[in-house]
Amino acid sequence: HMTFVALYDYVASGETDLSFKKGERLQIVNNTEGDWALAHSLTTGRTGYIPSNYVAPSD
Rank of each mutant, 00 (worst) to 15 (best):
N30R: 11
F4P: 00
Y8P: 00
G45M: 04
V5S: 03
A12G: 13
V5Y: 08
L18A: 06
A6T: 06
A6D: 00
M2Q: 13
E33S: 13
L38V: 05
R25F: 15
D35G: 15
D59N: 11
K22Q: 08
W36D: 01
T47P: 01
N31M: 15
I50T: 00
G45E: 03
K22L: 04
V11R: 06
K22V: 07
Y49V: 07
I28W: 04
R46S: 07
D17F: 15
A56Y: 11
G45T: 02
R25D: 04
V11L: 08
N30E: 13
R25Y: 15
L26N: 01
A56R: 11
R46T: 05
D59V: 13
P51D: 05
F20A: 02
P57V: 11
T16D: 12
P57T: 09
I28L: 10
I50R: 00
S13L: 11
N30F: 14
Y10P: 00
D59K: 07
T32W: 15
N30S: 14
L42E: 06
V11N: 10
D17Y: 14
H1M: 13
A6Y: 00
E24Y: 05
H40M: 14
A56C: 12
E33L: 14
E33N: 14
R25P: 08
G34H: 08
S41E: 01
F20V: 11
T16N: 14
D35R: 10
T44A: 02
A39V: 14
S58M: 15
S52R: 15
G23W: 04
H1E: 11
R25V: 15
T47C: 09
F4T: 05
D17G: 14
A37Q: 12
E24R: 00
D17M: 14
S52F: 15
A37S: 11
G34R: 07
A39H: 00
D9Y: 01
G48S: 05
L38S: 01
H1K: 09
T44P: 01
L38N: 02
S19M: 07
Y49C: 09
S13H: 11
T43S: 10
S13R: 14
F20G: 02
S58T: 12
S13Y: 10
Y8R: 09
E15F: 09
G14Q: 10
G34A: 07
Y10R: 04
T3P: 06
L26K: 00
M2H: 13
E33C: 14
I50K: 00
G23Y: 04
V55W: 07
V29Q: 08
A6R: 00
A56H: 09
S41G: 01
P51E: 01
F20R: 15
E15K: 11
S19R: 05
Y10T: 00
D59Q: 12
K22P: 04
A12M: 04
T47F: 10
E24S: 00
L7G: 04
A12T: 04
N31R: 12
S13D: 08
L26I: 10
V29D: 06
L38E: 04
G14V: 09
D17I: 08
N31G: 14
F4A: 05
L42P: 07
D17W: 10
F20E: 00
Y10C: 04
T16I: 08
N53L: 09
R46L: 13
M2Y: 12
D9M: 02
G48R: 00
D59G: 12
N30C: 15
A6Q: 00
D59L: 13
S52L: 15
V55G: 05
T44G: 02
A37C: 15
H1G: 14
G14P: 02
T16M: 14
R46H: 09
K22S: 07
L42N: 04
H1V: 13
E15T: 11
D17T: 09
Q27G: 03
R46D: 06
N31K: 12
P51K: 05
E33T: 13
E33Y: 13
E24C: 03
K22M: 07
S41F: 02
K21P: 01
S13F: 10
T44S: 09
E24N: 01
T43P: 02
K21F: 08
W36L: 06
S58R: 06
P51Q: 04
T16G: 14
G45S: 03
V29P: 06
T32V: 14
S19L: 07
A39Y: 05
K22R: 09
K21T: 09
Y54T: 05
K22F: 04
D35S: 10
L7H: 05
K21A: 09
A37F: 15
G45R: 03
I50Y: 01
L7F: 04
L26G: 00
S13G: 09
N31Q: 13
R46Y: 08
L42K: 04
S41D: 03
Y8Q: 09
Y54P: 03
S58H: 12
P57A: 11
T32D: 10
P57C: 11
Y8T: 07
P51R: 04
N53H: 13
V55L: 11
Y54Q: 06
T32H: 11
K22N: 02
A56G: 10
G14F: 09
F4Q: 04
Y10H: 06
S58W: 15
T32L: 15
R25N: 07
T3S: 08
E24L: 00
Y54M: 12
V11D: 10
T43L: 09
Q27D: 06
L18M: 14
S19Y: 04
T43N: 09
K21V: 09
H1W: 13
N31H: 13
T43A: 09
M2V: 11
S41W: 02
Y49Q: 05
A39L: 01
L26Q: 00
Y8S: 07
E15N: 10
Y54A: 14
V55M: 07
H1L: 13
E24T: 01
L38H: 04
F4Y: 14
N53D: 09
A56F: 11
S19T: 09
I28A: 02
G48F: 05
Y8D: 06
Y8G: 04
T3V: 15
I28N: 00
D35P: 14
V29T: 07
A39S: 01
T47H: 07
F4K: 03
S41Y: 00
P57L: 13
H40R: 12
V55F: 11
E15Y: 09
Y54L: 13
F20Q: 00
F4C: 08
R25S: 10
N53R: 13
S13P: 08
V29Y: 12
G23V: 00
V11G: 04
Q27C: 14
Y8E: 08
